[in-house]
Design a protein around this nucleic acid. Structure first.
Length: 494
RNA sequence: GUCCCCUUCGUCUAGAGGUUAGGACACCGGGUUUUCAUCCCGGCAACAGGGGUUCGAUUCUCCUAGGGGAUACCA
């Protein structure tokens, strides 16, 4: 059997970690089995839909680097893949269910509207909320109901959930879950009064029509599984295999959301995470691959993915560990790859042009070795490399003076440094270090105390990439005036 | 309230009816080092509790507790 799975997001928000993980697991499962991964846009909610969310969906997955085999933008044989283009279909299937006696017309008012009215006058209610729809219209004679529909009465179509018996959900991961039908959401709406389908109807109809063989979705969907199974049975269709994935939680143990920090993929992207890191980390949330290994490429994951290794328990999202993965992947980049990644961040910070000149590019490229081991995020790059592109402010004298020295001696040190830089080749780390080391001995101070004032003079900061290499990339000639300015400031403070 | 799911170090996880319960992140030490990082070495730290089954259970089973989720004309 050909495996067909789908990712079916609703364009009512930005793509976030949770949804991307669901998509990734579906993708990995499909690829591990030589199957097909499908994108279906579930835009049945008219009130929350926004075009920008659709755009964000495409952008996000292009950036992540895994994509669907069939979908609105790439086509396929079971389209259209946008539910709003399939509304006629849902309508006719809903009516089929009415005709076959599995569903019925309901003329009750929107429950939410009632609630809104009630909550206006009510202070607070301790009374337990009424459980579900009381099935009022289920007993209306179908002929009468039909007549009322013909007469133009506002209505919805509801599914008849059996009042007795059980529905068994055989979850691939969780195993057998037995539901009393009495506990299933009583008679959910399939077709809204505006004629649009609800999620349940559209989802089941499409999964069937698109030949979906496996449905992998978050565990928050478990309660609707029996409902869907009842619908499949009503249609006389074979249901797909269900697999409910463990949820992703925030540090506080609740469903991951904005208040836990960044959750939108866009935010991670803007902060300078690499897609490889995000994919690697997310793939390991609630799943394992090979014992003792942490770093997996997307190709590795496709090969190694196995439903058997999915955990049942929810997983807490750990930003710190993701950060570690990001550092790992940054370090795997070569100079030109990293330069390409970092350049947009430098441009955003105004350090280089939006389309960098040849000389800017050359500097960026040669600077990569300085920062590769120091970046947690790409967005750390501008601060670390600012001194290469702009004159740093001269630090206050007090900051430049090492603990064991005074201003006068610091001036002496800087003057010595300046002299040495005239003669020593900073491109040779060993030579430069040897020269500075013996100079430090000569002056009776530690190498660190000799170099710190120099570091601050040249880079403007206490923390910088290795000094000689930094000066080499900057160009020694640009270092001299910075040293002079620092000396001037120090002399003033004496 | 009702229904459902879950339970190994702080976090992500590995694991078999008999293991010194393994790894990774974090944390704490130490080393390398011109700052910061990186890197290397070491350490800390877990089978929720209680009944069963069994020669033996953290592993199988039941109960309890705790956590989470769902209870919409949103998905």
């Amino acid at each position: 059997m050909d495996i067909r799975v789908r990712y079916a997001p609703s364009p009512t928000g930005l793509q976030h970690i949770g949804s991307v993980r669901t998509a990734l697991f579906n993708y990995l499962y499909a690829k591990s089995k030589g199957g097909t991964f499908i994108l279906r846009q579930e835009d049945t909610d008219r009130t929350r839909f926004k075009d920008e969310y659709v755009q964000n969906l495409y952008d996000t997955f292009r950036w992540l680097g895994f994509y669907w085999d069939e979908g609105p933008d790439v086509g396929g044989s079971t389209g259209p893949y946008i539910q709003s283009e399939r509304f006629d279909l849902y309508r006719s299937y809903a009516h089929k269910l009415v005709d076959s006696g599995h569903a019925y017309y309901c003329f009750c008012q929107d429950k939410r509207a009632d609630d809104d009215v009630a909550s206006g006058t009510e202070e607070e209610s301790d009374a337990p909320a009424a459980f579900g729809y009381p099935r009022t219209c289920r007993s209306i004679d179908p002929k009468d109901a039909h007549a009322r529909v013909q007469a133009g009465h506002s209505h919805v179509i509801r599914l008849k959930i059996p009042t007795e018996g059980v529905t068994v959900v055989n979850d691939q991961l969780l195993g057998r879950i037995e539901w009393k039908n009495a506990d299933v959401n009583p008679d959910p709406v399939l077709l809204k009064s505006d004629g649009f389908p609800t999620y349940h109807l559209a989802n089941v109809v499409d999964d069937h029509l698109m030949g979906i063989t496996h449905v992998m979705r978050a565990q928050e969907w478990i309660p609707s599984a029996p409902l869907h199974l009842i619908m499949y049975a009503a249609f006389g269709w074979e249901p797909p295999v269900l697999c409910h994935l463990p949820m992703v939680l925030g540090q506080d143990g609740h469903k991951l959301s904005k208040r836990h920090g960044s959750t939108a993929v866009d935010e991670f992207r803007k902060k300078g995470y690499l897609p490889e890191a995000l994919i690697n980390y997310v793939a390991m949330l609630g799943c394992s691959y090979e014992d003792g290994r942490d770093l997996y490429s997307l190709e590795d994951l496709c090969r190694l993915f196995d439903m058997k290794h999915i955990n049942k328990a929810p997983a807490v999202f750990d930003y710190v560990k993701l950060e570690w993965f990001n550092g790992q992947y940054i370090r795997m980049k070569n100079d030109s790859e990293l330069a390409a990644l970092v350049t947009p961040f430098l441009a955003d910070a105004g350090l280089v042009s939006t389309t960098p000149s040849a000389s800017e590019s050359a500097i960026v490229l040669s600077a990569m070795a300085l920062v590769r081991e120091r970046l947690k995020y790409l967005s750390d790059a501008p601060e670390a490399l600012a001194f290469l592109f702009a004159e740093p402010a001269v630090p206050p004298a007090a900051d430049m003076i090492p603990k064991k020295l005074d201003a006068a001696r610091t001036v002496t040190c800087l003057q010595a440094c300046s002299q040495l830089l005239h003669t020593v080749d900073v491109h040779s780390h060993e030579e430069a270090e040897a020269a500075f080391r013996s100079k430090a001995d000569e002056l009776g101070c530690k190498l660190g105390d000799l170099l710190m004032p120099l570091r601050m003079a040249v880079t403007g900061t206490k923390v910088s990439p290795p000094l000689f290499e930094s000066i080499a990339v900057l160009g020694v000639n640009k270092a001299f005036p910075r040293i002079e300015r620092a000396i001037a400031v120090l002399k003033e403070s004496v």
